[in-house]
Computed example of a mutant assay.
Amino acid sequence: MKTYKLIDMADVIRSKNSGPYELTFDVIFKTFDDYNFFKEHEPITAASFSKLYGIKEEDVFNVIYFDPAKAVKVTIKRPIPSGALGEVDVYGAQQHAPLVHFTFDA
């Protein structure tokens, strides 16, 4: 068994608004081989993502593996709506840091 770092496999790891009440995370892989390996082992699931972000599993709305783009998209409920009092990232563009450090064993 070997430990793999997502940052070594991905060209793009980003977060963004998906409306005022949702955040979307995109991981776009460098190669189809990396994407297919990742998809086969499926280390990102609603359960693993909720654990990584410290949220309830039911707040992970979608985990989509999108073959044509060699990408994974995850959409979650925003903890605080965009622009609401106490919200610190209106665009949702700074929420991807835990994914940058994501590792999995395969």
Rank of each mutant, 00 (worst) to 15 (best):
S82T: 07
A10P: 07
F49H: 08
V60M: 01
P68G: 04
A46I: 01
A93S: 09
F29I: 05
K2S: 13
Q94N: 14
D11S: 15
V74N: 02
S82C: 06
D67I: 02
S50C: 06
E57R: 11
Y91F: 11
F25M: 04
K30Y: 06
H101R: 13
D33S: 11
D11E: 15
D26L: 11
A84T: 12
P81L: 03
G54I: 08
A84G: 02
A71D: 10
Y91N: 08
T31I: 06
K30L: 01
F66V: 05
I80R: 14
E57M: 07
H96D: 12
S82Q: 14
I55E: 04
P98Q: 06
H96V: 00
P68S: 14
A47M: 08
T103K: 14
N36T: 10
I76A: 04
I28R: 12
F37K: 14
L99P: 11
F38M: 05
K30Q: 10
A93P: 00
Y4P: 00
L52K: 13
F61V: 06
Y35V: 01
I13F: 05
F32E: 15
E87L: 00
L85E: 14
H101L: 10
K70C: 03
V74T: 09
H41I: 00
K77F: 02
F104S: 03
K5T: 06
P79S: 10
D34R: 03
K2E: 14
V60D: 02
Y4M: 12
L23P: 05
V72Y: 07
Y21S: 09
K77W: 09
Y65R: 07
K73W: 02
I28G: 07
V100D: 11
K2N: 10
I55G: 01
N36A: 09
P79L: 06
V100N: 08
Y65C: 01
H96P: 00
I44A: 04
V74Y: 01
D89V: 02
H96F: 12
V63A: 03
P81H: 10
V72E: 05
P20A: 11
F38Y: 14
T3W: 02
Y91T: 14
V27W: 12
F38K: 11
D8E: 15
F37L: 13
I55H: 05
Y65E: 05
N62W: 02
I64W: 02
F25E: 04
A10V: 03
I55R: 04
I28F: 06
E87N: 10
S18E: 12
Q94T: 13
A97V: 08
T3L: 11
A93T: 12
D26N: 15
G54Y: 09
D67V: 01
R78W: 08
F29T: 11
V63Q: 02
T45H: 11
F25H: 11
K77P: 00
K73E: 12
I55W: 07
Y53M: 09
K30N: 09
Y65W: 05
N62S: 10
A71G: 15
S50W: 11
L52W: 08
S48R: 04
E87A: 10
A106M: 02
D59S: 07
L85P: 01
G54T: 06
Q94G: 06
